[in-house]
C-alpha cells in the first residue's frame, strides 16, 4: 500500500516512527521547498539517506570526513572501472588508505547528516515506495530509527508543535513492553535519564517536571522524544477515572452497554444473514 501525504499533516518524526514500528522496507522520498531527500529502510531500520540524485559517492564522503585528500578523492572518482562503492571500499582498505571502521563511521555520519535537517521541514510532500531500494551500489549501514528519532526530535525547536502533540501534562507515563532491550542501544542525555528515572504510572508529567526543576518546554521536548521513539506511552495517572475530552488516551477503558445479551445476539444473527 502506498503512503503518500503532506508533512503539514504527518511529520517526519511520525513517518519514521511508523516505518520503525511497522518494520517497513522501501524508500521514502520527501520533497520540500525545491529540496528532495530519499531515505531507504530495511525492516524498519534506516540504511541510507541522501539528497543527491545518485547517492553520495564514497570518495566524496571520505573526503568530507577528512579520510581522503581532495586530490585522492578526485583521482578515485575519475577511475571509471570501479563500479560500486563496496568495491571501492575494499580497494581502499586493502591499500591501507582507510580502515573498515573509518568507512562505516563516515557513511553513517553522511546518512545521519542527510536525515536530521528533514526534521525541521514542516512543509512538503512525502511518498513511501514499499520494497523499492535504489542505490544498490552504495554502502548501506543499518541504523536504529529510535536513536535517529531521539536526536532528530532534539533538534526540533518548535514549541507550538510540541504543545500540540502533548497538550496535557497531567497524564502519566509508563514503559512499553521490554524497554530494557531498546534502552541499551539508545544514547540518552543526562536530562532524559533524569526523566526516565521518574517514569511511573503514579507520577504525572507535570510532577516529573517539578521533581527535576524543568520547564514545561523542557519536559515536553523530552517526553515527546521518548514517545516518538516508542520507549514510553501515555496513561491515565493511577487513581484518575476518566480522561477529559480531547485528552490523549492510554489503555482503552470499555464497558458493556446496558443492553441484554439476547438483544445483541439477535442483531448479530440478523446482520449475518
Amino acid at each position: 500500500m502506498a503512503l503518500r501525504g503532506n508533512l503539514r499533516d504527518f511529520s517526519t518524526t511520525q513517518l519514521l516512527n511508523l516505518i520503525s514500528l511497522a518494520r517497513k522496507t522501501g524508500t521514502l522520498t520527501i520533497e520540500s521547498n525545491g529540496k528532495r531527500s530519499r531515505l531507504c529502510f530495511k525492516e524498519g531500520k534506516l540504511i541510507y539517506a541522501t539528497q543527491d540524485e545518485h547517492g553520495g559517492h564514497l570518495a566524496t564522503i571520505l573526503q568530507q570526513a577528512g579520510k581522503l585528500t581532495e586530490e585522492q578523492a578526485r583521482a578515485i572518482r575519475t577511475r571509471m572501472e570501479i563500479k560500486s562503492d563496496k568495491e571501492l571500499g575494499l580497494l581502499l582498505i586493502n591499500a591501507g588508505y582507510v580502515s573498515q571502521e573509518d568507512i562505516i563511521k563516515s557513511v553513517r555520519n553522511y546518512i545521519l547528516n542527510n536525515v536530521y535537517p528533514i526534521f525541521t521541514w514542516t512543509e512538503g510532500t512525502f511518498y513511501f515506495e514499499a520494497s523499492v531500494l535504489p542505490f544498490e551500489d552504495r554502502i548501506t549501514i543499518p541504523i536504529n530509527l529510535e536513536s535517529v528519532i531521539i536526536e532528530g526530535s532534539r533538534r526540533m525547536q518548535e514549541w507550538e508543535r510540541l504543545q500540540d502533540e502533548l497538550p496535557n501534562l497531567d497524564m502519566a507515563l509508563k514503559f512499553v513492553e521490554r524497554p530494557d532491550a531498546r534502552l541499551r542501544d539508545i544514547n540518552l542525555s543526562v536530562e532524559e535519564w533524569r526523566v526516565v528515572s521518574f517514569i511511573n504510572p503514579r507520577n504525572t508529567i507535570r510532577q516529573i517536571a517539578q521533581f527535576n526543576n524543568m520547564s514545561d518546554f523542557q519536559i515536553r521536548k523530552i517526553v515527546y522524544a521518548l514517545l516518538q521513539a516508542g520507549l514510553v506511552e501515555l496513561v491515565q495517572p493511577e487513581g484518575v477515572a476518566k480522561p477529559a475530552p480531547g485528552a490523549p488516551s492510554g489503555a482503552p477503558v470499555m464497558r458493556a452497554p446496558a443492553v441484554k445479551r439476547s438483544v445483541v445476539e439477535k442483531i448479530i444473527g440478523f446482520l449475518q444473514r
Binding site: 503518500r4 501525504g5 503532506n6 503539514r8 499533516d9 504527518f10 476518566k242 480522561p243 477529559a244 475530552p245 480531547g246 485528552a247 490523549p248 488516551s249 482503552p252 477503558v253 470499555m254 464497558r255
Partner: peptide, 19 residues
C-alpha cells in the same frame, strides 16, 4: 492523512462521553 489528527481527537472526545 490530513484528517488523521482530527480522527484521533474525535475518538478521544467520544470515549470521554461514554466508556
Amino acid at each position: 492523512p490530513e484528517t488523521f489528527r482530527e480522527a484521533r481527537s474525535i475518538l478521544d472526545t467520544f470515549r470521554a462521553y461514554a466508556p
